[in-house]
Design a protein around this nucleic acid. Structure first.
Lengths: 188, 188
DNA sequence: TCCTTTTCCATAGAGATCTAAATATTAGAT
DNA sequence: ATCTAATATTTAGATCTCTATGGAAAAGGA
């Protein structure tokens, strides 16, 4: 205990552990995503877009979608082309502003999206709900903490030099994450 | 208390919260990975492969790499081709078994990998180490719990698995995205 | 009104990723 | 010697993603 070297090593071990755990989580979602693509015949971006279309009932434009999923407008056009060819999506020019194009799910598209059950979410939710309430609360708090720490840094790619300055204020950032919201901004 | 409906709603709220937090974590790693690609000129799979090569000092074959990063052999061959063309990697037929091909980093490749800023891991580690020990321990426990729950459902991968709402946004996807690469490695 | 600028979408072109199928090539076994 | 399995590459096709550019429609000013 009185040994500072020992304490420092324990600290490094904890960092190691948290990074490993994080990798496992991300890896798991990655593999699931891959597996999902195989079973549905849809790729991850395609599913993502269809979900975005479904969630924004009817009024979504191509540009909106691009912003929502953080892809370029050309990419979204491209993917929508393919979804339209398959009959999962259709386009419709806006009447108010004829530059805009709305994207909507066809009945078939909606069905595909619904029939592709989302058991990772469901199963995870089920397992999660089996935990004790205190553990659920702990996990939520921990994940929010982690998410917040990650949000804070993802553009600040500059110096790794100022080791001394520990309570840096995260300069957030270039738009993208609509996430760094008030929700946890207050946590520090 | 005593009100069952109320308690149930609180439970649903917690599930909602944990899913949101998880999405944010994955989203952050995704955006980071994208940013990394821009600043290094390397794509996520390329970085991932170079890290794998570095970690398995010298004796790695193409097949080993494919297994390690969960890609097909052909894909790895493909990516190695590009890396070789750029002078970051070189191939060498095994003397013991001439079917095998070893992949090694060139000095330049190693340098690129080291110079590539990996601020997500570093900065995350720094912020993490600022936390109190009890909080570090809590986060580790929580993440391990989550990772374990996700691993569990990956194993009985019979039903359709999904990342659905948990899904990373740009694929990176699916990205495929995305990847533990951001967190991986470079802990030398 | 007419002209300019801006906004929104589509298209073109290029590089990368990924998979599956069709080769070699080598090692090991019969 | 031949067959089979393992290994890496090649090929072909689909997708993803970006930047740059073009065209149509809206907005704004002279």
């Amino acid at each position: 205990m009185g040994n500072p070297g020992e304490e420092e090593r324990a600290e490094l071990d904890r960092i190691e552990e948290v990074l490993i755990a994080l990798r496992r989580v991300i890896r798991a979602t990655d593999l699931h995503s891959k597996h999902l693509s195989k079973t549905t015949g849809l790729t991850a971006p395609q599913i993502l877009l269809m979900q975005a279309i479904r969630n924004s009932e009817g009024n979504t434009t191509i540009g909106d979608l691009a912003g929502e999923v953080s892809l370029s407008q050309a990419t979204v056009t491209n993917i929508i082309d393919r979804l339209e060819r398959r009959g999962y999506v259709f386009r419709e020019r806006s009447q108010q502003d004829r530059r805009k194009v709305h994207a909507c799910l066809t009945d078939q598209g909606l069905q595909v999206l619904q029939e592709a059950p989302m058991p990772l979410q469901d199963q995870f939710a089920r397992q999660f709900s089996d935990l004790h309430e205190w553990e659920q609360t702990m996990i939520i708090a921990a994940l929010q903490r982690v998410a917040h720490m990650m949000d804070a840094q993802h553009i600040d790619a500059s110096p790794v030099l100022d080791v001394g300055n520990l309570d840096r204020h995260p300069a957030v950032d270039d738009d993208t994450s609509a996430y760094a919201s008030a929700l946890d901004a207050s946590r520090d």
